[in-house]
Design a protein around this nucleic acid. Structure first.
Lengths: 221, 221
DNA sequence: GCTTGACTAGGACGTTCGTCCTAGTCAAGC
DNA sequence: GCTTGACTAGGACGAACGTCCTAGTCAAGC
């Protein structure tokens, strides 16, 4: 009733593109869903919450997402997780592992832990949905986690770490970050993050220091 | 309707202790709640589900838990998490870190990952509840995580690892385990667990191998 | 100027939720 | 044998859920 903007649907300054439809309503819903998943989880987020935060109409749910709540969840996890994956991949592509892992930890801190509201991760949220009949939610999450792991493992392997060990360290890093988000939500502060961050960097140094070949091979600039 | 045991309330062989009330109804509810939290999360678990699995009456909810769903959640997380904490503390008390950490990983595998149904953790579940007005759920979870971390850190410190480093490794281990549970739920198999387990043991070896003093102090037996 | 299609606005549906409530059942203790 | 108290059994409550639905609004294109 007391909605502040939007009013009867569209305001004077509206700049929607002709004919193609108001494409950004869909995107606003995806972003709102990702935020809500992070804050309240999948089962704690209602479709009404999503449209309310996105300032969209309830009818927009099935107009833009015929698959209903499940489709919104998948889309939101893919969008948020993919955005992180792109940044992780970019940070890891040409950096030394120490810088790459540091950048990954920095991203987790900014996007998952110290963001508005309690710590949380939209990808974790869809993974933990109570119902997922055909496994579509978990499959989407699994794909995202795989991208994160592959990017980090590639970064280490390129620096001369044995591929198996690199893959294991990447798994520990991704699992450690997701676990840290959880611990930070439980504690309400960033202490667990600081401990895990330091612990992962400790261990990365040991791993890099134990390289059989040249201690720090130049990986091309 | 087709309830198998209990019938009209109590069967012939019932051995409830006189006067004190049927104490194990409460315990059955706690166990059922812990299982359901692991499988479906806090927001995905209803009070009706709990009493149904515990073969208890709906009226038993507020008879045994005046605080309602929140109190059941806290109790279940405390029970399940405390049980794990006791085992972790026992495994870490007198063992070499390698054995202690191995035992912790083994526990996680058996209780959180390869248990019936999808991978999950009741303590994580209450941490991720959508609503937690006075923070009671998260406080209970935080206490459990603290016990796990302290037990592992103590094990390493007793073996000669610098206290700070030991605490960090413990944080990585607990966060890594919780994250692994998540990754295993997403993937539907135990591959992430195997990678994280190997990665943590890799790094423990590096940590122990870099000890300044005697490489592997005999800690009795 | 009328049609068309994208989108808004929100009522209505059946279900499930947490919670509260009363009635009934059984065993213990006087 | 009656009272008492622990516990069962399940109806009732208002709220919220996902979903479907119709009516209304606006801009583009004929």
């Amino acid at each position: 009733m007391a909605r502040m903007t939007g009013g009867t649907g569209r305001t004077a300054g509206d700049t929607r593109q002709r004919g193609t439809g108001q494409r950004d309503t869909r995107q606003r819903m995806v972003v709102a869903a990702a935020q809500l998943l992070r804050e309240r989880g999948y089962d704690g987020t209602g479709c009404r919450d999503v449209v309310a935060r996105a300032r969209a109409a309830r009818g927009a749910i099935y107009h833009h997402f015929p698959g209903g709540k499940t489709e919104i969840g998948i889309e939101a996890a893919r969008w948020a997780g993919g955005l992180v994956a792109e940044r992780v991949e970019r940070a890891c592509a040409e950096a030394h592992p120490r810088e790459g892992v540091r950048a990954v930890l920095e991203l987790a801190d900014r996007l998952l832990i110290r963001a508005d509201g309690p710590a949380g991760c939209p990808v974790a949220a869809v993974t933990l949905s109570a119902e997922d009949p055909d496994g579509a939610l978990r499959a989407a999450a699994n794909e995202i986690f795989g991208r994160w792991r592959a990017a980090i493992a590639g970064c280490l392997a390129r620096a001369g770490v044995d591929a198996q060990r690199a893959a294991r360290f990447a798994a520990v890093t991704v699992a450690g970050i997701e676990g840290t988000v959880l611990l930070c939500r439980a504690s309400g502060d960033v202490e667990p993050y600081q401990a895990v961050r330091a612990g992962l960097l400790d261990q990365l140094d040991l791993l890099l220091g134990s390289l059989p070949g040249p201690a720090e091979p130049e990986t091309g600039l």
